[in-house]
Design a binder for these strands. Structure first.
Length: 277
DNA sequence: ATACAGGTCTTAA
DNA sequence: TTAAGACCTGTA
């Protein structure tokens, strides 16, 4: 990684490959063996990892201003990991597999769209859908390498589309969910800044009013767009894990306040690890 | 081929 | 209140 500014830090419980691959961010991708790129809030960043040494393609100021929070670096994930029940072999294994995961601070509106698209869909296509939306409706920028990249469009850019117009971006039947949600925001039916101030349950209830947002998608938005770590999205993978390993229910009480972090370890294990066994 | 992907909405008992 | 069915589209 050369050409622009760089800032290196030593970080525990951070694995950029796992973060990229765990299905919470659809705008991160691998560039080469140790380097990943991500687009967030209009910014472009590359991250290179060698062991605990992480190099960011930005200056210290931008790092402190934005990326430190984005990657949730002020939070001690070791604390969550150590809270895991040592007798819970399944969870211990899942955590070992994904111990470098972090819950990113992503943009609320972008998460609303991303997880509306995610329903009954696969990750490869979700990424493609979002890329299509950004290329067609987002802003064109140039990174420090001179390459083009596209920012995520504001709600206003999508609010005036016909309900099926986003099918051209390959959204399928989800097109109207995104179009109507954009409209709800622009017309003031839902106030994103107000939602940002709400506690988890209240924010979830507000999101559930949106067309196309059910319980699972609302929880994903809460977890990834609002950083409510108590949100515990129940999807097919988690349901499978519950049936196999937690017939009496997941011990949420033990992990009160950070259930969502545990959910991510289980989800990532079911998504990428379990089939390797 | 047919089922399934980080579900939700609609309709009918 | 619950339970089928429909829904875009690509991949295995």
């Amino acid at each position: 990684m050369q050409g622009g500014q760089m800032f290196t830090k030593t970080i525990d419980n951070f694995d950029i490959a796992q973060i990229c691959d765990c299905g919470q961010c659809f705008r991160m991708s691998q560039r080469d063996e140790h380097t990943y790129s991500v687009i967030a809030s209009g910014k472009y960043l590359e991250v290179e990892q060698n062991g605990k040494e992480i190099t960011f393609s930005c200056g210290e100021e931008e790092f402190e201003e934005f990326w430190k929070r984005y990657f949730d670096l002020d939070r001690d994930y070791k604390k969550y990991i150590e809270a895991a029940d040592p007798n819970d072999r399944y969870l211990m294994n899942a955590i070992r597999f994904g111990s470098g995961i972090r819950i990113l601070y992503q943009d609320l509106w972008e998460m609303m769209v991303s997880f509306l698209i995610s329903q009954q869909n696969n990750i490869v296509r979700i990424r493609r859908c979002i890329q299509n939306i950004c290329e067609r409706y987002g802003g064109e920028r140039v990174n420090f390498r001179g390459e083009k990249y596209y920012t995520f469009p504001e709600p206003e850019k999508l609010a005036f589309l016909a309900e099926d117009e986003l099918k051209e971006c390959n959204l399928g039947y989800r097109s109207k969910y995104v179009a109507r949600t954009a409209r709800s925001i622009v017309e003031g039916e839902i106030d994103l800044n107000a939602v940002r101030q709400m506690p988890y349950e209240e924010a979830k209830a507000e999101l559930l009013k949106l067309y196309g947002v059910g319980v699972k998608v609302a929880d994903c938005i809460c977890l990834f767009g609002l950083h409510h770590l108590e949100a515990f999205p129940m999807d097919t993978h988690i349901l499978q894990a519950m049936e196999k390993h937690y017939k009496r229910g997941f011990p949420k009480r033990r992990y009160r306040g950070f259930e969502g972090v545990m959910q991510q370890y289980v989800f990532y294990w079911e998504l990428r690890g379990a089939r390797l066994e």
